[in-house]
Amino acid sequence: MRIKWYGHAAFLIETQGVRIILDPYRSPDSGGYEPVAEPADVVVVSHENDRYHSHLGQIVPPFHVIRALELPPEGEAFGGITFQAVPVFESPERLPGDEVTIILFRAEGLHVAFLGDLGHLLTDAELEPIRGADVVLIPAGGKPTLDLDDVPALLDAIGPKVVVPMHYKTPKINLNIRPIEEFLERLPDDPVVRVDGSEFSIDRDTLPDRRTVYRLEHAR
Protein backbone atom coordinates (compact mmCIF):
# COMPACT_ATOMS: atom_id res chain seq x y z
CA MET A 1 0.00 0.00 0.00
CA ARG A 2 1.35 3.41 -0.99
CA ILE A 3 0.18 6.50 0.90
CA LYS A 4 0.81 9.97 -0.53
CA TRP A 5 -0.13 13.24 1.16
CA TYR A 6 -1.07 16.05 -1.24
CA GLY A 7 -1.66 18.59 1.52
CA HIS A 8 -4.30 19.52 4.11
CA ALA A 9 -6.54 16.39 4.32
CA ALA A 10 -6.04 15.15 0.75
CA PHE A 11 -4.36 11.79 0.19
CA LEU A 12 -3.75 9.30 -2.58
CA ILE A 13 -3.76 5.68 -1.47
CA GLU A 14 -2.78 3.08 -4.04
CA THR A 15 -3.71 -0.45 -3.07
CA GLN A 16 -4.87 -3.61 -4.84
CA GLY A 17 -4.54 -1.80 -8.17
CA VAL A 18 -6.97 0.96 -7.09
CA ARG A 19 -6.13 4.68 -6.89
CA ILE A 20 -8.11 6.20 -4.01
CA ILE A 21 -8.14 9.95 -3.46
CA LEU A 22 -9.46 11.18 -0.10
CA ASP A 23 -10.89 14.64 0.67
CA PRO A 24 -9.50 16.78 -2.19
CA TYR A 25 -9.31 20.54 -1.57
CA ARG A 26 -9.99 23.37 -4.05
CA SER A 27 -6.93 25.31 -5.22
CA PRO A 28 -6.18 28.20 -4.83
CA ASP A 29 -9.22 28.94 -2.65
CA SER A 30 -7.86 26.82 0.21
CA GLY A 31 -4.56 28.71 0.24
CA GLY A 32 -1.35 27.90 -1.60
CA TYR A 33 -1.64 24.17 -2.21
CA GLU A 34 -1.44 23.36 -5.91
CA PRO A 35 -4.29 21.38 -7.54
CA VAL A 36 -4.23 17.63 -7.09
CA ALA A 37 -4.50 17.26 -10.91
CA GLU A 38 -3.96 13.48 -10.94
CA PRO A 39 -6.20 10.59 -11.98
CA ALA A 40 -8.19 8.49 -9.53
CA ASP A 41 -10.28 5.38 -9.77
CA VAL A 42 -12.42 6.45 -6.83
CA VAL A 43 -12.68 9.67 -4.83
CA VAL A 44 -14.01 9.34 -1.29
CA VAL A 45 -15.10 12.48 0.59
CA SER A 46 -15.72 12.48 4.33
CA HIS A 47 -18.24 15.35 4.18
CA GLU A 48 -19.37 18.18 1.95
CA ASN A 49 -16.96 21.12 2.06
CA ASP A 50 -15.99 22.08 -1.47
CA ARG A 51 -13.13 24.37 -0.46
CA TYR A 52 -11.26 22.03 1.87
CA HIS A 53 -12.56 18.46 1.62
CA SER A 54 -14.78 17.57 -1.33
CA HIS A 55 -13.71 19.42 -4.49
CA LEU A 56 -13.85 17.11 -7.52
CA GLY A 57 -13.13 19.61 -10.28
CA GLN A 58 -9.32 19.39 -10.24
CA ILE A 59 -8.97 15.59 -10.36
CA VAL A 60 -8.39 13.97 -13.76
CA PRO A 61 -11.56 12.09 -14.82
CA PRO A 62 -13.09 9.59 -15.12
CA PHE A 63 -13.52 8.45 -11.52
CA HIS A 64 -16.19 7.07 -9.23
CA VAL A 65 -17.32 9.18 -6.25
CA ILE A 66 -18.25 7.92 -2.80
CA ARG A 67 -19.82 10.45 -0.45
CA ALA A 68 -19.35 9.04 3.02
CA LEU A 69 -22.27 10.95 4.55
CA GLU A 70 -24.56 9.00 2.19
CA LEU A 71 -23.11 5.53 2.80
CA PRO A 72 -25.38 2.80 4.22
CA PRO A 73 -24.13 0.97 7.35
CA GLU A 74 -22.73 -1.88 5.24
CA GLY A 75 -20.72 0.57 3.15
CA GLU A 76 -20.06 0.54 -0.59
CA ALA A 77 -17.65 -1.67 -2.51
CA PHE A 78 -15.44 -0.45 -5.34
CA GLY A 79 -12.61 -2.38 -6.95
CA GLY A 80 -12.83 -5.12 -4.37
CA ILE A 81 -12.51 -2.67 -1.46
CA THR A 82 -15.42 -1.88 0.86
CA PHE A 83 -15.59 1.69 2.16
CA GLN A 84 -17.53 2.31 5.36
CA ALA A 85 -18.29 5.44 7.35
CA VAL A 86 -18.68 6.21 11.04
CA PRO A 87 -20.90 9.29 11.48
CA VAL A 88 -19.24 11.84 13.80
CA PHE A 89 -19.11 15.63 14.21
CA GLU A 90 -16.59 18.41 13.65
CA SER A 91 -17.51 20.04 16.96
CA PRO A 92 -17.32 18.54 20.47
CA GLU A 93 -20.85 19.84 21.03
CA ARG A 94 -22.07 17.59 18.16
CA LEU A 95 -24.16 20.40 16.74
CA PRO A 96 -26.59 20.02 13.83
CA GLY A 97 -24.80 21.01 10.63
CA ASP A 98 -21.42 19.78 11.94
CA GLU A 99 -21.91 16.21 10.68
CA VAL A 100 -18.77 14.61 9.22
CA THR A 101 -17.52 11.03 8.97
CA ILE A 102 -14.60 8.74 9.64
CA ILE A 103 -13.82 6.62 6.56
CA LEU A 104 -12.73 3.01 7.00
CA PHE A 105 -11.51 0.37 4.58
CA ARG A 106 -9.41 -2.78 4.50
CA ALA A 107 -6.94 -3.72 1.77
CA GLU A 108 -3.80 -5.88 1.55
CA GLY A 109 -4.49 -7.08 5.07
CA LEU A 110 -4.36 -3.55 6.49
CA HIS A 111 -7.18 -1.71 8.25
CA VAL A 112 -7.10 2.02 7.42
CA ALA A 113 -9.00 4.76 9.26
CA PHE A 114 -9.21 8.29 7.83
CA LEU A 115 -10.50 10.52 10.64
CA GLY A 116 -11.38 13.47 8.39
CA ASP A 117 -12.63 16.50 10.33
CA LEU A 118 -13.34 14.63 13.57
CA GLY A 119 -13.69 17.11 16.41
CA HIS A 120 -14.28 15.06 19.56
CA LEU A 121 -13.41 11.90 21.45
CA LEU A 122 -15.40 8.82 20.48
CA THR A 123 -18.01 6.81 22.31
CA ASP A 124 -17.56 3.06 22.65
CA ALA A 125 -20.06 2.54 19.84
CA GLU A 126 -18.15 4.91 17.54
CA LEU A 127 -14.83 3.31 18.49
CA GLU A 128 -15.94 -0.26 17.89
CA PRO A 129 -15.40 -0.39 14.08
CA ILE A 130 -12.19 1.67 14.33
CA ARG A 131 -10.46 -0.07 17.23
CA GLY A 132 -7.40 -1.98 16.07
CA ALA A 133 -6.94 -0.02 12.84
CA ASP A 134 -3.36 -0.44 11.59
CA VAL A 135 -3.07 2.96 9.90
CA VAL A 136 -4.76 6.14 11.16
CA LEU A 137 -4.77 9.41 9.21
CA ILE A 138 -5.48 12.01 11.88
CA PRO A 139 -6.17 15.78 11.99
CA ALA A 140 -3.20 17.33 13.76
CA GLY A 141 -3.96 21.05 13.75
CA GLY A 142 -6.26 21.29 16.74
CA LYS A 143 -9.58 23.11 16.80
CA PRO A 144 -11.97 23.32 15.00
CA THR A 145 -11.10 19.62 14.60
CA LEU A 146 -9.81 17.32 17.34
CA ASP A 147 -8.41 19.17 20.36
CA LEU A 148 -4.69 18.38 20.51
CA ASP A 149 -4.96 17.44 24.19
CA ASP A 150 -7.41 14.68 23.21
CA VAL A 151 -5.05 13.10 20.67
CA PRO A 152 -3.18 10.72 23.03
CA ALA A 153 -6.37 9.27 24.53
CA LEU A 154 -7.95 8.78 21.12
CA LEU A 155 -4.90 7.02 19.69
CA ASP A 156 -4.60 4.87 22.81
CA ALA A 157 -8.23 3.82 22.34
CA ILE A 158 -7.79 2.98 18.65
CA GLY A 159 -4.39 1.30 18.95
CA PRO A 160 -2.80 1.92 15.52
CA LYS A 161 0.78 1.08 14.57
CA VAL A 162 1.08 3.87 11.97
CA VAL A 163 -0.12 7.45 12.56
CA VAL A 164 -0.10 9.94 9.68
CA PRO A 165 -0.76 13.58 10.68
CA MET A 166 -2.75 15.86 8.35
CA HIS A 167 -4.90 19.00 8.50
CA TYR A 168 -2.28 21.14 10.27
CA LYS A 169 -0.79 24.57 9.65
CA THR A 170 1.66 24.98 6.79
CA PRO A 171 2.46 28.11 4.75
CA LYS A 172 0.08 26.72 2.11
CA ILE A 173 -3.18 26.56 4.07
CA ASN A 174 -5.30 29.62 4.89
CA LEU A 175 -6.90 28.23 8.07
CA ASN A 176 -6.01 29.30 11.60
CA ILE A 177 -4.86 25.90 12.81
CA ARG A 178 -1.81 24.71 14.74
CA PRO A 179 1.57 23.53 13.36
CA ILE A 180 2.67 19.89 13.41
CA GLU A 181 5.16 20.50 16.22
CA GLU A 182 2.32 21.02 18.71
CA PHE A 183 0.80 17.68 17.71
CA LEU A 184 4.12 15.90 18.17
CA GLU A 185 4.56 17.48 21.61
CA ARG A 186 1.46 15.54 22.74
CA LEU A 187 3.11 12.24 21.77
CA PRO A 188 6.60 12.53 23.31
CA ASP A 189 7.11 8.77 23.56
CA ASP A 190 6.11 7.93 19.99
CA PRO A 191 8.93 7.48 17.46
CA VAL A 192 8.70 9.84 14.48
CA VAL A 193 9.73 8.77 10.98
CA ARG A 194 10.46 11.94 9.01
CA VAL A 195 9.80 10.77 5.49
CA ASP A 196 11.97 12.45 2.86
CA GLY A 197 9.09 13.29 0.56
CA SER A 198 5.32 13.05 0.37
CA GLU A 199 4.77 9.29 0.32
CA PHE A 200 5.69 5.95 1.82
CA SER A 201 4.76 2.31 1.37
CA ILE A 202 3.57 -0.05 4.07
CA ASP A 203 2.43 -3.65 4.33
CA ARG A 204 1.76 -6.11 7.13
CA ASP A 205 5.39 -7.21 7.17
CA THR A 206 6.72 -3.67 7.55
CA LEU A 207 4.30 -2.40 10.22
CA PRO A 208 6.33 -1.05 13.15
CA ASP A 209 6.27 -2.95 16.43
CA ARG A 210 4.98 0.10 18.31
CA ARG A 211 2.90 3.14 17.44
CA THR A 212 4.96 5.37 15.13
CA VAL A 213 4.23 8.74 13.57
CA TYR A 214 5.03 9.08 9.87
CA ARG A 215 5.60 12.76 9.10
CA LEU A 216 5.23 13.52 5.39
CA GLU A 217 6.03 16.53 3.24
CA HIS A 218 3.05 17.83 1.29
CA ALA A 219 3.21 16.97 -2.42
CA ARG A 220 1.41 20.10 -3.58
Rank of each mutant, 00 (worst) to 15 (best):
E128W: 11
P152G: 14
P72V: 09
L118Y: 03
D149T: 13
I130V: 15
F89S: 15
G57C: 04
V100K: 09
P92Y: 07
H111L: 14
G80L: 07
L154E: 02
S54L: 00
A85Q: 04
V135L: 09
G142R: 06
V162N: 03
H120W: 12
H120Q: 11
I81H: 01
L122C: 05
D98E: 15
A133H: 08
F83S: 04
A85E: 13
G116S: 13
A77S: 15
V135M: 02
V112D: 00
I102P: 07
F89N: 11
I81A: 08
L118N: 13
E48A: 12
L155A: 10
A140R: 05
L127F: 11
L146Q: 06
F78V: 04
A107G: 12
P160Q: 03
H120Y: 00
K143N: 07
H55C: 12
P73D: 08
L154C: 07
F89D: 06
A153Y: 10
V60K: 10
H120N: 10
S91M: 05
G119A: 06
P62Y: 12
K143A: 14
A133F: 09
P129E: 10
L69S: 06
G79Q: 06
P61I: 03
I138V: 15
S54E: 00
L104N: 01
S91N: 13
H53S: 14
A85V: 09
V88T: 07
G141T: 06
E128F: 10
L56V: 01
P129N: 09
P87N: 07
T145A: 14
G57M: 02
F114H: 15
G141C: 08
R106M: 05
I103W: 07
T123Y: 11
P139Q: 08
L121C: 06
N49I: 00
A153N: 11
G142W: 06
F105M: 09
E93K: 11
L122D: 02
S91W: 02
G159P: 04
L110R: 05
P129S: 02
E126G: 01
K143S: 13
I59F: 09
I66P: 00
R131N: 00
P73Q: 08
G142N: 08
I138R: 01
R131Y: 01
V151M: 07
G159A: 14
I102N: 02
D98L: 06
L95T: 09
L155F: 11
P129D: 09
F114R: 02
Y52H: 13
D134A: 08
P62M: 13
I103T: 15
T101Q: 08
I138T: 07
G132F: 10
G80I: 07
F89K: 10
G119H: 11
D117T: 13
P139N: 04
R94D: 06
F89M: 09
E93N: 03
L71A: 04
E128H: 11
D117R: 15
V112S: 03
Q58K: 00
L110K: 04
A133M: 07
D117P: 05
N49V: 01
P61S: 11
L154S: 06
D150M: 04
G119C: 09
G97H: 14
L122G: 05
